[in-house]
C-alpha cells in the first residue's frame, strides 16, 4: 500500500459523462436505494466509470458521480482513494494485475515479475504503445494454478516466463488468447502424474450410487437387529410374567405406574371418558379375591369420608 493520488492535471480528460446506456444503467442502480441513500451507489458508479474511462477513474468522473449522487466531491474522492481496485492513474489497454503473494512467489512469480519489468517497465508504467501496464496485487485466489496474473477481467494461470511472454506477444498482436491455465491443463486438474483417485471402480460406474446402497444396507441391518432385540425382550417379558404369576404375588388393583407424570390409564374416570363400562366390584372380586375391596369395607370407607 502506498499513498494513492489522482493522476496529474495534464493527463486528466477535459470532462466525463456516462454514455447513454451507462446512464440508464446508473439510474437503475441508484433506484435500488431508498430515498436519501443514493450515495450508496457510489462504488457501482465508480466501477462503471472506470470501465468506461479505459480502466481508470479520472477526476472529472469523480465530480460527475458526486453531482449525480448529490455528494460532496471529497466524499467520492475518499471512496475512490480507499479502494485499490479503482485505478487513479491511466492503465494500459491490457491492465495486468500480477499476483505476488506467497503461493505464487513459491511457484515462480518472481520470473513472471522479471518478464513484466523487462517488457512493460516498472509498476504503473504504461508502455509507449499504450497496450500494457501492470501492478502487483495481493492474492487473487487462484493459488492452485500459481503463478498467475489477471489481465483485465480474465485470469491467466500456470504461467512460465515463456508462456507469459507468448501471451503478451499474442495480446500485443491481437491474436486470440485463451484465459485460464496456459500449460494445457483444464481448470485445476492434475497436470501430469496422477497420484490420487486411482481406483478403477471410481470410473466404471460401479460405485455410482454406492453410498446410497451402503446406507440402505446399513439401515436394513439396523432394522433387523432392532426387530430381533424387540422379539427377545418380548420373550423375556412373557417369561417374567409367567414367573410372576407362578409366584402368585398379590398384584395391586391399580397398574403399577410409579413414574411421576405418567398417567394411570385405567381409572374409573378414564373408562367413563373412553365410553367403557366401569369395572364392577363383583368382577374385581372375581379377578383378585384377595385384594379387591369388600362391599362392607367400601361402605365404611364412604361413611368416614362423608
Amino acid at each position: 500500500m502506498s499513498v494513492r493520488r489522482l493522476a496529474p492535471k495534464e493527463i486528466q480528460p477535459e470532462g466525463f459523462a456516462f454514455t447513454p446506456e451507462n446512464t440508464a444503467w446508473a439510474e437503475r442502480i441508484i433506484a435500488k436505494y431508498p430515498e436519501g441513500r443514493q450515495a450508496s451507489a457510489v462504488i457501482s458508479l465508480l466501477w462503471k466509470a472506470q470501465e468506461q474511462g479505459g480502466g481508470w477513474v479520472s477526476e472529472p468522473a469523480i465530480r460527475t458521480i458526486a453531482d449525480l449522487l448529490k455528494m460532496p466531491y471529497i466524499r467520492v474522492l475518499e471512496v475512490a482513494t480507499f479502494y485499490t481496485m479503482f485505478n487513479l492513474q491511466p492503465v494500459g489497454r491490457y491492465f495486468i494485475q500480477f499476483c505476488g503473494t506467497t503461493p505464487c512467489r513459491l511457484r515462480g512469480a518472481q520470473d513472471i515479475q522479471d518478464v513484466l519489468e523487462q517488457r512493460v517497465g516498472h509498476q504503473g508504467h504504461v508502455t509507449e504503445d499504450g497496450l500494457f501496464s501492470w501492478l502487483e496485487v495481493e492474492c487473487l485466489g487462484a493459488c492452485c494454478n500459481a503463478p498467475m496474473v489477471q489481465i483485465n477481467n480474465d485470469y491467466y494461470e500456470d504461467l512460465t516466463p515463456e508462456s507469459f511472454n507468448k501471451l503478451l506477444d499474442d495480446l500485443a498482436a491481437g491474436r486470440p488468447v485463451k484465459p485460464g491455465p496456459q500449460n494445457g491443463r483444464v481448470a485445476s486438474e492434475p497436470l501430469n502424474a496422477i497420484n490420487t483417485l486411482l481406483e478403477p471402480s471410481l470410473y466404471d460406474g460401479s460405485v455410482v450410487g454406492s453410498w446410497r446402497k451402503r446406507f440402505e444396507e446399513e439401515e436394513a441391518r439396523a432394522r433387523a437387529e432392532a426387530a430381533a432385540k424387540a422379539a427377545e425382550e418380548k420373550a423375556a417379558a412373557e417369561k417374567a410374567a409367567l414367573a410372576a404369576r407362578e409366584a402368585a404375588v398379590p398384584e395391586p388393583a391399580k397398574p403399577a405406574t410409579t413414574r411421576a407424570g405418567e398417567q394411570v390409564a385405567d381409572t374409573p374416570a378414564h373408562r367413563v371418558a373412553e365410553g367403557k363400562e366401569p369395572i364392577k366390584p363383583e368382577s374385581q372380586q372375581a379377578a383378585a379375591p384377595d385384594t379387591a375391596p369388600k362391599a362392607a369395607d367400601r361402605a365404611a370407607d364412604d361413611k368416614t369420608k362423608g
Binding site: 500500500m1 499513498v3 460532496p72 474522492l77 482513494t81
Partner: peptide
C-alpha cells in the same frame, strides 16, 4: 463538508478536494 480523509490505513490523509 470540504474536508475528508483520503487513502486508508497508515496512508490516510486529511485534505480538501
Amino acid at each position: 463538508p470540504d474536508l475528508g480523509a483520503i487513502g486508508r490505513g497508515e496512508d490516510m490523509e486529511i485534505t480538501t478536494y
